[in-house]
Amino acid sequence: MDNQNPQTPAKKSNLIYFLIVVVLALLGTNAYLYFQKNKSDEKLVYQINDDNKTLVKTQTTLKASLDSLTNQLDSANSGKHRVSQELQAKDQELKAKITQLRKALASGNLTASELRSAQEDIKQLRYFVTKYTADIEELKQQNASLTTERDTLKTNLATVNQKATTLQQQNQELNTKVQTAAAIKTSSVAITAYKIKNSGKEVDVTRASTAKKIKVNFTVTTNELATKGLHDIYLRIIDPTGNLVTSGDSGNFTINGQDLQYTYKSSIDFKNDGSGYTIDWVSPAAFQKGTYSVLLYADGYQMGKSSFNLR
């Protein structure tokens, strides 16, 4: 008994030291776990903040992409080109998809997964918009080519029409020249007034009071272009006061496209031999003192003229 008592305090002392070490070890372990937990929580906070920033950045990028696609569509549709119904339907489809994605992004409640899905949609949308833009550009080029061809055809047609008009004018001028050249002309015209005696004999006079008729004597110039045969001759007799003398034999005829009234109409047999001709005209009224003018027309042109004076 006496030998065991001295060892009891030593055993107790060792036990106390052991317990102290254990407590210190536990305290150290707790401290280590505490600090590690704080670091983990801080890292988690940073990760959450970074994820939020990434989501916001992604949404901003997607909105910018949609703006770019919208501008691309607007640019493709600018101008007055006509597109097919198929392209019009594709344009409406693309715009509807863009509107749908805008609404989704505007809500601000998209998850990371939904944003990734939106990114894929925009990627496909960009492909379709690019193809649509290329189709529109090709259509513009085709329209430009067709416009050029149309303008070229118009220019060519205008040139052809101008040439045709010029040829027609030249033909008309040539025909006019031919007709003018083919018309018979007088080389001389002489007019004499006559009175008629009771015996029927004609006597030339110079007094208006005794004159009853006139004889228009003219010679027709030879003309190889003129048609041989009968030609109508129109007389226009202008009295001293400047008025056309008319009678029951008067009528209308056309000269150079102008409608005129004649005093008397007759005809001659043109033989292209320089023959002379005479046309008698009896006045339906008494002659006036003064100078009368006599104009002869044939084949649509004036063939000669002369005058005579009565006292």
Score class of each variant (00 low, 15 high):
84 S>N: 06
84 S>L: 06
85 Q>H: 04
85 Q>N: 11
85 Q>S: 11
85 Q>G: 05
85 Q>T: 11
86 E>M: 04
86 E>G: 05
86 E>N: 09
87 L>E: 02
87 L>K: 02
87 L>W: 04
87 L>V: 05
88 Q>M: 13
88 Q>W: 08
88 Q>L: 14
88 Q>V: 13
88 Q>R: 14
89 A>S: 12
89 A>N: 11
89 A>K: 08
90 K>E: 06
90 K>Y: 03
91 D>C: 03
91 D>R: 02
91 D>W: 00
92 Q>V: 13
93 E>A: 14
93 E>I: 04
94 L>D: 00
94 L>M: 06
95 K>Y: 00
95 K>T: 00
95 K>N: 00
97 K>F: 00
97 K>H: 03
98 I>S: 01
99 T>G: 04
100 Q>D: 11
101 L>F: 03
101 L>Q: 09
102 R>E: 12
102 R>S: 08
102 R>N: 15
102 R>G: 05
103 K>Q: 13
103 K>C: 03
103 K>F: 07
104 A>L: 10
104 A>Q: 09
104 A>G: 05
104 A>C: 04
105 L>F: 05
105 L>R: 02
105 L>H: 03
105 L>T: 04
105 L>C: 08
106 A>I: 05
106 A>R: 12
108 G>K: 08
108 G>P: 07
108 G>A: 06
108 G>E: 07
110 L>S: 15
110 L>V: 09
110 L>R: 11
110 L>P: 06
111 T>D: 07
111 T>G: 13
111 T>F: 07
112 A>D: 13
112 A>F: 09
112 A>V: 11
112 A>R: 10
113 S>Y: 13
113 S>M: 09
113 S>P: 08
114 E>P: 04
114 E>F: 05
114 E>C: 05
114 E>A: 14
115 L>N: 10
115 L>A: 12
115 L>I: 15
115 L>W: 09
116 R>H: 08
117 S>F: 09
117 S>W: 08
117 S>T: 15
117 S>I: 12
117 S>G: 09
118 A>T: 15
119 Q>Y: 03
119 Q>D: 09
119 Q>P: 02
119 Q>S: 10
